[in-house]
């Protein structure tokens, strides 16, 4: 098997995650889809690391995880406060920017 299949898998997972972001309304699920996309990227990084024979890709994946953790913390905090005020976790409800 050619390890490039890992990259195809990553692309597939990324696309599924992106589609999820577009389709789902629940903010929590939305966040999960974003996590999925980040994970797909991480998989690609790890594969690249193996391909090039150095560890930089893994380091980047590591940093991605850290940043994802930070992002999840803030994002979930936002969802909680949004839920508190609007009693809903639907992103469509927060369409006040519209004219």
């Amino acid at each position: 098997m050619n390890p490039v299949n890992y990259l195809y898998l990553a692309a597939l997972l990324f696309t599924i995650g992106a589609a999820g972001v577009l389709i789902r309304r629940n903010a929590i699920v939305l966040f999960m889809c974003i996590e999925l996309m980040l994970n797909a990227c991480n998989l690609a990084f790890v594969t690249f690391s193996r391909m090039h024979g150095n560890l930089d890709g893994q380091i980047i994946a590591f940093f991605t995880m850290v940043v994802a953790a930070a992002e999840v913390v803030v994002g979930l905090a936002i969802i909680v406060s949004l839920f508190r005020t609007r009693h809903s976790a639907s992103v469509d409800d927060a369409s006040l920017m519209k004219l």
């Binding site: 999960m32 996590e35 690391s49 893994q58 995880m65 953790a69 979930l76």
Partner: peptide
């Protein structure tokens, strides 16, 4: 893929911590 450290971190941090936060 040889990323042993990252694999463990993925299980411990991601699946263990972040998903639990979710």
């Amino acid at each position: 893929n040889g990323a042993y450290f990252l694999g463990i971190v993925q299980v411990v941090v991601y699946t263990g911590a972040i998903m639990m936060l979710f």
